[in-house]
Amino acid sequence: MTNEELKLTIAKLCSSAEFKDGAQFLEVIVPAADLHHLCRELRHNGETAFDYLFCLTGVDYPTYFEVVYHLDSTRHRHVVVLKARTASREYPVLDTIGDIWPTAYSHEREVYDLLGVRFNNHPDMRRLFLEDGWGFPLRKDYVDPVRIVER
């Protein structure tokens, strides 16, 4: 599918999705509530068939967290980037998509570990790299006077 066709399909599945063109891939900003539903449709719909989640990461913005899902289809070879934003920075929560792409479970753990975004329905929401009680280092307001030296 071309980006235009993808846009139409996604708009049909999720009316409140916003699109951003002109970037490297087609970028779709998905409301957090629709994320799981849209992902499941994109995965199982034969025309989109996004079966390969090749990157999942989180970005810290001043007022919200954004989790970025890079999806690829091994059948149609088209790529879409989904972005879901948390409602607030205080209690950042999104739905897990690990039941759709199991590789997401470990990536979500990484996002939780480094950014503190929690994922609903994740079976194993433990820290991945760091120990419990450590801060969330990829947040922009993370301070660690001992280990980070400002130059």
Partner: peptide, 8 residues
């Protein structure tokens, strides 16, 4: 193959 794709 399906597992390989799903698990990335």
């Amino acid at each position: 193959k399906e597992e390989a794709i799903a698990w990335g």
